[in-house]
């Protein structure tokens, strides 16, 4: 009888331990899991006049600023994070080329903070033009959740010496824990 009771107690304790371990595991994963996502919208467009000429002998203007802007949202599907958390993050950017001329430089900068979604947070960096290369590089950083962080784009070294073609590249934004 005593032995049977002991076995039951041991079994009960084991179950409790397993239960507590699972709860602990979920809490730990919840605390350290990725709550943030970066979402893009909009993007650059360059007026056709950038690549046209009316006077023989001239070159294109070397610099062309995008007519339209791009936007980044740094938010989370985690309700609590969106409003109460203050995780620090940083954004990196690189260029994934489909058709591109190495002479061309695609530059980007952050022109506004957008709107803060969380109760607290900050954004810094990225306010000066940087040339986006094929290697990920730091763009800007911040904390908390934000929407509509406005970006501007420009092309440098535009020239008639670059082969005529339909150029296409993709800007890849990655968010990391800072």
């Amino acid at each position: 009888m005593t032995c049977r009771l002991l076995i039951q107690l041991v079994t009960f304790d084991s179950m409790n331990r397993i239960f507590l371990l699972i709860v602990f595991f979920l809490l730990v994963v919840g605390a350290t899991g990725q709550p943030l996502v970066v979402t893009t919208s909009g993007g650059p467009s360059f007026h056709s006049s950038v690549f046209s000429l009316t006077e023989a002998g001239k070159n294109f203007k070397s610099r062309a600023v995008s007519q339209t802007k791009g936007y980044l949202d740094v938010t989370s599907t985690n309700y609590w994070y969106n409003y109460y958390s203050n995780y620090r993050w940083r954004i990196s950017v690189y260029r994934y080329d489909v058709i591109w001329a190495q002479e061309l430089s695609l530059q980007i900068k952050r022109v506004s903070n957008g709107t803060r979604v969380s109760n607290s947070g900050s954004i810094s960096g990225g306010k000066s033009w940087i040339s986006v290369s094929n290697i990920p590089q730091y763009f800007f950083k911040g904390s908390g959740a934000w929407s509509n962080i406005k970006l501007n784009f420009r092309l440098q070294n535009v020239s008639v010496l670059i082969p005529a073609d339909d150029y296409q590249t993709t800007l890849v934004f990655t968010i990391y824990e800072d």
Binding site: F46, W80, Y167, T170, Y176
Partner: peptide
């Protein structure tokens, strides 16, 4: 969302993209 299930890979990196296209005639 508490433990990040359903997000990209469950790691601390997440990507999104902006396409850039133009033509030199």
């Amino acid at each position: 969302p508490i433990y990040g299930w359903g997000q990209n890979g469950g790691g601390w990196d997440e990507e999104d993209y902006i396409d850039v296209a133009f033509s030199i005639p």
